Measured scan of single mutants.
Amino acid sequence: ALNRGDKVRIKRTESYWYGDVGTVASVEKSGILYPVIVRFDRVNYNGFSGSASGVNTNNFAENELELVQAAA
C-alpha cells in the first residue's frame, strides 16, 4: 500500500501528469474510488508555472500509480 510522502509515477494515460512523478499527500481509507491524493511540482494547464492558480494535486487509484521511492 502507498503511504504519505511516497514518490509515485503516474500511469493513467489520459492524465496531464502521465509519466510524471508526484508525492503522495494523503491516502483516504473510506473506500472511495480514487483514494490517493498526489501532489506535483508543476501545475496543470489551469494555471501558469509559478502561479497559485493552477491545480497541482489530483486523486488517483492505487493501480494507476507506480512506487518510485518509499517515504523515509
Rank of each mutant, 00 (worst) to 15 (best):
N58Y: 06
R39M: 11
I32L: 08
R42C: 15
Q69M: 10
N46P: 15
Y16K: 03
I32N: 13
T57N: 05
V21Y: 04
A25G: 02
Q69D: 10
V36T: 00
E64I: 02
K11A: 11
D20Y: 08
A1L: 10
N59Q: 08
S30T: 14
E66C: 11
V68L: 14
T23Q: 06
L2C: 14
V24E: 01
I37K: 11
Y45L: 15
E66I: 12
K7V: 08
W17Q: 01
G19E: 08
N56C: 15
K7E: 05
N56G: 03
Y34F: 14
R42E: 15
V43M: 11
I10E: 01
G22H: 01
N58R: 05
V38H: 00
V38E: 01
N46Y: 08
S15T: 01
V68N: 02
A61D: 09
G5T: 02
R4Y: 14
K7C: 14
V36G: 00
F48N: 15
S15E: 01
R12H: 07
G31I: 14
T23E: 14
P35Y: 12
V38F: 00
G50S: 06
S53R: 04
G54K: 05
R12S: 06
S49G: 14
V8A: 02
E14F: 07
S26T: 10
N44A: 05
D41N: 05
Q69P: 09
Y34L: 09
E66S: 05
G22Y: 04
E62R: 10
D20T: 05
N56R: 07
Y18W: 06
V21R: 00
E62Q: 09
R4L: 13
R12I: 07
F40W: 00
S15N: 03
E64K: 00
T57D: 04
T13I: 14
T23W: 06
F60R: 01
V38C: 06
N58P: 03
S53K: 11
W17R: 01
S49K: 06
N58E: 15
Y16H: 05
L67V: 09
E14S: 10
N46R: 00
V43Q: 05
P35M: 12
G47I: 05
E66K: 03
T13H: 09
L2Y: 12
G31L: 14
T23K: 05
V68R: 03
I10F: 00
D6H: 01
Y16Q: 04
S49T: 14
Y45H: 15
I10T: 01
E66G: 02
E64G: 01
A71Y: 10
G19S: 04
P35A: 08
L65Y: 00
R12Q: 07
Y45M: 15
S49E: 15
S15M: 01
E28T: 07
R4M: 12
S30I: 10
A72K: 13
Y45E: 15
V24G: 01
D6T: 02
P35E: 13
A25T: 12
D41W: 04
D20V: 08
S15R: 01
Y34A: 08
E14T: 11
N44Q: 14
I10P: 02
A52M: 08
V36L: 03
S26Q: 13
V27G: 01
A52Q: 09
E62K: 06
L2I: 12
I37L: 15
N56L: 04
N63Q: 10
A25D: 14
I37N: 08
S51V: 09
R39A: 10
S51K: 03
I32T: 10
I32K: 07
A72W: 08
V27Q: 03
G54E: 05
K11D: 04
S53Q: 13
S26A: 14
V38W: 00
N44P: 04
K11M: 11
K7W: 06
N59H: 09
E66D: 09
P35G: 07
T57Y: 11
V24R: 15
A61G: 10
W17M: 01
K7F: 08
D41C: 15
G22L: 05
R9D: 02
K7A: 06
S53Y: 06
R4H: 11
R9G: 03
N63T: 11
A1F: 09
E62Y: 10
L67Q: 03
A61T: 05
F60H: 00
L2W: 04
R12Y: 04
V43S: 06
R12K: 11
T57R: 04
I10V: 14
S30V: 11
D6P: 01
Y34R: 13
A25Y: 07
S51F: 05
S53E: 14
G31H: 12
K7H: 07
N56V: 06
N58G: 15
N59G: 14
R9V: 07
E66T: 08
Y18R: 00
V68D: 02
I32R: 08
V68W: 04
E66H: 03
Q69I: 10
Y45G: 15
T57F: 12
V27L: 08
L33M: 12
N46V: 05
A1C: 14
L2H: 04
E66Y: 05
T13P: 12
A25H: 11
V43T: 10
N59F: 07
Y18M: 03
N58S: 15
F40Q: 02
N3K: 15
R4D: 09
D41V: 09
G54W: 05
E28Y: 06
A71I: 10
N46S: 05
G54F: 04
V38T: 00
Q69K: 07
N44E: 14
I10Y: 00
S26K: 11
D41R: 05
K11N: 09
N63W: 13
N59R: 07
Y18S: 05
N44F: 13
V8H: 01
G19Q: 10
G54L: 14
A71K: 08
P35D: 07
R12N: 15
Y18V: 04
A61S: 11
R4W: 06
V38G: 00
S49P: 15
G5N: 06
I37Y: 06
V21E: 04
A71G: 12
N63R: 08
Y16V: 04
N44V: 07
G47M: 04
G31R: 08
G47K: 04
D41Q: 12
K29R: 13
E64S: 00
S53D: 13
Y18A: 04
D6V: 05
I32F: 08
G50Y: 03
E28C: 14
G54D: 04
G50I: 04
W17V: 01
E62N: 08
S51P: 10
N63Y: 12
V38Q: 00
G31E: 13
N3T: 12
E64N: 02
T13C: 14
E14Q: 07
F48H: 14
A71R: 06
F48D: 15
V55E: 08
G47V: 05
W17K: 01
A61K: 07
F60K: 00
S30W: 09
N3A: 11
D20C: 14
F60L: 02
N63V: 09
E28A: 10
L2P: 05
Y34H: 12
W17G: 00
N46G: 10
E62G: 06
V24F: 01
Y16N: 03
R9W: 03
L65T: 14
S49I: 13
Y45Q: 15
D41P: 05
Q69L: 06
L65H: 00
V36D: 00
Y34Q: 08
A61F: 09
L65M: 03
A1I: 11
G19N: 10
G22N: 01
V27C: 06
G19L: 07
V55S: 08
A61R: 09
N44S: 04
A61H: 08
A52V: 10
T13L: 12
Y34S: 05
D41S: 06
L65G: 00
I37E: 14
N46A: 03
G50H: 06
G50C: 15
T23N: 03
A70T: 09
V21M: 05
T13K: 09
V68C: 11
W17D: 15
D6E: 02
